[in-house]
């Protein structure tokens, strides 16, 4: 996910992995190094919706 940046401030994102398999990250989170906003990774899919749109869909 090298091409992603923070949707709020365009800052770089730091990846934390909670769960992964041989091929990919399944659960984790991306944290913005500039503004601190946190984006969850669930079922292998980073959720980059802005905080106010993020209710689980």
């Amino acid at each position: 996910m090298e091409i992603l940046v923070c949707p709020v401030c365009r800052g770089d994102l730091e990846l934390e992995v909670f769960e992964e398999n041989e091929r990919e990250i399944l659960t984790g989170r991306l944290t913005c190094r500039s503004c601190g906003e946190v984006y969850p990774i669930e079922e292998g899919i980073p959720n980059m919706l802005p905080p106010e749109l993020r209710e689980r869909r």
Binding site: L4, P7, E24, I45, L49
Partner: peptide
């Protein structure tokens, strides 16, 4: 094949240059 899929709103998501 491997594809990175991302959940996002087209008007609000941000990317580096591709």
């Amino acid at each position: 094949v491997h594809v990175d899929f991302v959940l996002g709103d087209i008007e609000r998501i941000a990317f580096r240059r591709v």
